[in-house]
């Protein structure tokens, strides 16, 4: 269908431009306003040192993280929804975010003195711990939901339960932190592009980019899996193997996102749904569209969060939750 194809390319181009627009907007907004012309000047190397510092050291790493995490979470949601055949699957609801957050807090609690003082090797180890936590949570959920196969509904309910368990375990450690760290951990766990600097980007970005590209390559496997096990097996696909690879991919993306930006919930649910409405269920189209949508939503939320009130920055995860829960509830009411 050439018509559908050109429409798809137009859509991708549109989303791409939207992302660039948001990117430029968030570069020039903030407590220190830098006009677009000045931004351009600074990028060309003609800005003053203060502008360079603000743009390159403070704003740019955060924006890069927002872009990548937005994509990673959306892709993770797409894969989870496809593999579990459940429209409401999402790393936040399934407890994967909380599991990753739990292990990260443990790591900070035992090996680092506070949330702010992570540096050097500590930064590069953080994603590793987040991944361990994400896989641990996913394993627990999968094992507990297993009863002659994994039924989608059981998976979701078990995910909610495991989520509650990790939250309780988290509180156990959080109350032993001093109040400052307690609040910081709290905020970070609900999703915050926290102390984003280039070290952080270097520690997480390459992995995220790699996994996102790999999942683009895996879209046909996803298409086959959504046909249902019987049909997929009939087509000669190694169903269990593909399912495991895809699940690992989704959990890996979610874990990395938590390492980079805390436990942002609902984004992995909302972006895929919007994409499905726009381009239909075929993953080779739906996945890139939802990745770009996710990036745009997270950038937008970041702009709102850091500019809405002058007195304090509102963490991006909070904005995402407030904006996307009404949509989630709408979906919940519609699904049978």
């Amino acid at each position: 269908m050439p018509k559908g194809r050109s429409r798809f390319i137009l859509l991708l181009a549109g989303l791409f431009i939207l992302n660039i627009g948001l990117f430029l907007l968030s570069l020039n907004l903030g407590s220190i306003q830098i006009s677009p012309a000045e931004v351009l000047d600074t990028f060309l190397g003609n800005g003053d040192t203060r502008q360079e510092l603000v743009l390159f050291q403070f704003r740019l790493p955060g924006i890069v993280i927002a872009l990548l995490v937005g994509m990673a979470l959306s892709v993770s949601g797409v894969i989870l929804q496809g593999v579990t055949q459940n429209d409401l699957a999402e790393p936040g609801i399934l407890g994967i975010n909380t599991g990753a957050g739990f292990v990260v807090v443990l790591y900070i609690f035992f090996f680092q003195s506070s949330m702010n003082s992570i540096s050097g090797w500590g930064t590069y180890l953080l994603p590793l711990f987040a991944l361990i936590g994400a896989f641990l949570a996913a394993l627990i959920v999968y094992a507990l939901a297993w009863h002659k196969g994994v039924e989608p509904i059981r998976l979701i309910l078990v995910g909610i339960g495991v989520n509650a368990g990790f939250s309780a375990a988290l509180i156990l450690f959080q109350v032993q932190m001093d109040p400052q760290d307690f609040m910081q951990a709290m905020v970070w766990l609900s999703g915050d592009i926290w102390s984003a600097n280039w070290n952080f980007v270097a520690a997480t970005a390459p992995w995220m980019i790699l996994l996102i590209i790999y999942s683009l390559y895996k879209t046909s496997a996803l298409n086959v899996l959504t046909l249902g096990d019987d049909l997929a097996k009939g087509l000669g696909a190694p169903v269990e193997k593909e399912r495991r690879i895809l699940l690992l991919l989704a959990v890996g993306l979610a874990g990395l996102s938590v390492a980079a930006a805390g436990g942002i919930a609902f984004l992995g649910l909302v972006a895929p749904h919007m994409a499905r409405r726009i381009v239909g269920p075929r993953h080779e189209r739906m996945l890139p569209v939802s990745a770009l949508l996710g990036a745009a939503i997270l950038q937008g939320a970041d702009i709102i969060g850091s500019n809405l009130t002058p007195s304090a920055e509102i963490p991006v995860g909070i904005v995402v939750t407030i904006v996307s829960t009404p949509y989630f509830i709408y979906l919940l009411m519609k699904t049978n």
Binding site: S190, I314, G317
Partner: peptide, 23 residues
């Protein structure tokens, strides 16, 4: 359960936003 998660999540996010704004 999901409605509880969603409503609870939204309300607690709103509380956090308000409490950060008003310190």
């Amino acid at each position: 359960a999901l409605a509880g998660v969603a409503i609870g999540g939204m309300l607690s996010s709103l509380s956090t936003a308000i409490s950060l704004h008003f310190q």
